[in-house]
């Protein structure tokens, strides 16, 4: 780890000021010389590994008083970005009306990490690609733009099959983001010119030719809240992984359904562990909407979700696995008693 200046942000404006001053135009925010610190569970890790080398850290935890509320309402759910994962996962109304959110959080990381990690930090979690996290590998377009991708023909069992480019196949590792993108959440962002909202689906950027740019956040901008419209009691987060706990998804599905009289009126499907960004499977949703549910329909939806998937040497299994996870998540959602 390299020496850095530690600053506590007493109010959002100061935090935004300091962070925006440290960002340079046309430079990825992840390389800005000042970085925000919330739970610290990703940033500190990457600093120890010498992957991130900020000269200053702006501790935004003092903003928690305004930014950590959990506010369920009849029309929408609002979650402060500094709410702890564990608090949201255990919240009664979220368990009842948004099981996909509660479970995506509960099945992530470990109890200790969930107690520290915040929602905003969680969606910003960076990839677990081994080649990205080990600076002794020169070839990483995300860490070292233009240097190539060691994972492309390396050990890539954990890597993505959707949203990849010839520059990067690193998987977006989180779980909660799949719930947000499935439920059409918006994200509230606080920056130099105040607060703006955008669809959560527009927050992350697929790697394309610039895998070093991971989000659409502007210099200085901080996530202050998430807003989820409606209620989704018929929703499921299914996560397949190598061990029973404390492990990233090999494949996961966030599914939310609105079923009336046996007909699917609305369907939401998002995929985790298989894509470079939080992945909304709209093709799958299109198969489901307006149909009566049966296993063949679920299979058609799953096939549609992975129609564009591209496997590499060690991760092709994720395509078949991902489809089965989607099918099972749909079956579970349909049969939920609510």
């Amino acid at each position: 780890m390299r020496p850095f200046v530690y600053q506590r942000a007493t109010d959002p404006d100061t935090a935004v000021q300091v962070l925006s001053a440290a960002a340079t135009a046309n430079h990825p925010l992840t390389r800005a010389t000042a970085q925000p610190l919330a739970g610290g569970t990703t940033l500190i890790d990457l600093m120890k590994l010498d992957v991130m080398r900020p000269a200053a850290i702006v501790d935004i935890n003092p903003l928690a008083q305004g930014w950590s509320a959990i506010e369920p309402g009849s029309e929408r759910l609002r979650l402060g970005a500094l709410a702890k994962m564990s608090d949201v996962a255990a919240h009664d109304e979220i368990l009842r009306n948004y099981p996909v959110i509660a479970n995506s959080l509960k099945l992530a990381a470990s109890a200790q990490l969930r107690n520290m990690a915040t929602l905003g930090g969680n969606v910003m979690q960076r990839t677990r690609c081994s080649y990205f996290r080990d600076v002794s590998y020169e070839n990483c377009n995300k860490r070292n733009p233009g240097s190539g991708c060691a994972a492309m023909d390396g050990v890539n069992r954990m890597h993505a099959v959707l949203g990849t480019s010839d520059q990067c196949i690193a998987t977006y590792p989180g779980d909660f983001a799949q719930a947000l993108i499935a439920l059409d959440a918006t994200v509230e962002v606080t920056g130099r010119s105040g607060t703006r909202s955008m669809p959560f689906a527009e927050l992350h950027k697929a790697p394309g030719n610039t895998p070093e740019i991971e989000t659409t956040l502007q210099p200085g901008e901080l996530i202050s809240a998430f807003v989820v419209p409606g209620r989704w009691p018929r929703s499921v987060y299914l996560k397949a992984r190598d061990r029973q706990s404390y492990e990233f998804a090999l494949s996961s599905a966030a599914v939310a359904l609105d079923v009336q009289d046996g007909t699917i009126r609305d369907a939401r499907v998002a995929l985790g562990g298989v894509a470079t960004v939080p992945w909304r499977a709209r093709e799958a949703e299109a198969q489901l909407k307006g149909q009566r549910f049966d296993d063949r329909l679920a299979q058609r939806a799953a096939d549609a979700a992975f129609a564009e998937a591209k496997g590499r040497q060690h991760n092709s299994f994720k395509i078949a696995l991902g489809k089965r996870v989607v099918v099972r998540a749909l079956q579970q959602a349909v049969t939920m008693e609510i």
């Binding site: 081994s130 080990d134 060691a150 390396g154 061990r243 029973q244 404390y246 492990e247």
Partner: peptide, 22 residues
């Protein structure tokens, strides 16, 4: 890594050992 004869998952996040739930 076959190409480089290097160990890739040389950490406790990627070299899996059981947790209590297992």
């Amino acid at each position: 890594d076959e190409r480089t004869a290097r160990y890739v998952n040389d950490n406790f996040a990627d070299y899996l050992v059981p947790v209590n739930a297992d």
